[in-house]
């Protein structure tokens, strides 16, 4: 049986831990709200740009002059997985789930005889994937230094990926991240970003409903020129929204994890306090017995 002093120390140390986890939970909750707002306000742009591209893509058709970013370069041999994870831990299974999704993708692709390259965003994903797939990693960036997520970060990443595609370093690019559903649920997904038409086909039905009253779109400069500028931008936008979703997911997951930790600490404190009181009473009782039997002996 631990001594009273030891028990007291343990109780106070668990109490301190609980204070920290509770503070982290509250910080995560505040950040989650901000992250959700950011994701919310980025949505109109992403939706509009998707609509515009599918509009253009359907009018361009599969002609020979369609940009490679849209229709692909005709091969599917090398696949670049852009895996976005968080830079910090203590957020439950958030990072592990994304990494698991990425590993499933890698295994499936390699079984199909394809070469896999990894482009990693976020330290936690790097730590986990570096152990298993060190040779596959072509680039790793951490966003730890960035205080807020802004479109510039996504633009840099997007430009990087696009230039790698143009240099022929890969044929297909997939983005792996977690879709934020709610605090308890973040859904890891793999989304194809290059070629772009893979992600557009889904939305084609919605936008064909766009009513121009029979008028014809005028393009300034020409369609191809616009598409050439628009496609990289759409890739940037997809990366940006993935980063935003991830941020919201990380905070949600952290909030849930810290809530659990706080509750567990509370339980532990209750148990320890119970043991502490029992030990104290046992000690008092045995002291009393000693005194009484001592008095009787006189």
């Amino acid at each position: 049986m631990a001594s009273l002093k030891e028990l007291k120390n343990r109780i106070s140390s668990v109490k301190n831990t609980q204070k920290i986890t509770r503070a982290m939970q509250m910080v995560a909750a505040a950040k989650l709200r901000k992250a959700q707002e950011a994701a919310e306000s980025a949505r109109p742009y992403a939706e509009r740009i998707r609509g515009v591209i599918s509009n253009l893509a359907s009018s361009m058709g599969e002609g020979g002059d369609a940009p490679k970013l849209l229709v692909g370069n005709g091969k599917q041999d090398t696949v670049l997985l852009v895996v976005a994870t968080a830079d910090r831990g203590l957020c439950g299974g958030f990072n592990t789930n994304i990494v698991r999704k990425a590993r499933e993708e890698i295994v499936a692709l390699e079984r199909a005889g394809k070469t896999v390259k990894l482009y990693l965003i976020g330290k936690k994903g790097y730590d986990q994937l570096n152990r298993l797939y060190h040779d596959h990693i072509v680039k790793y960036i951490s966003l730890k230094e960035e205080r807020t997520l802004h479109a510039g970060i996504a633009r840099n990443i997007g430009e990087d990926v696009t230039s790698m595609f143009e240099a022929g370093e890969f044929d297909v690019a997939k983005l792996v991240f977690a879709n934020f559903k709610n605090v308890m649920e973040q859904d890891p997904v793999a989304q194809t970003i290059i070629p772009a038409n893979a992600s557009i086909e889904v939305t084609e039905d919605e936008t064909s409903g766009l009513d121009l009253n029979g008028a014809i779109y005028t393009y300034e400069p020409d369609e191809a020129g616009i598409l050439r500028v628009l496609l990289p931008r759409s890739i940037n936008t997809q990366i940006f929204s993935a980063l935003l979703e991830n941020q919201a997911g990380e905070m949600g997951s952290k909030m849930a994890a810290m809530d659990n930790a706080t509750r567990n600490a509370g339980e532990m404190i209750d148990n320890l306090t119970m043991t502490f009181n029992r030990t104290r009473q046992a000690k008092i009782t045995s002291e009393l017995i000693e005194i009484i039997s001592g008095a009787e002996a006189l």
Partner: peptide, 19 residues
């Protein structure tokens, strides 16, 4: 400010996509 020159858009403009 369009790439090909400035544009003024008024209500009921014809469909246009400009950089």
């Amino acid at each position: 400010p369009g790439t090909e020159g400035n544009l003024g858009i008024l209500p009921d403009h014809a469909p246009l996509m400009a950089a």
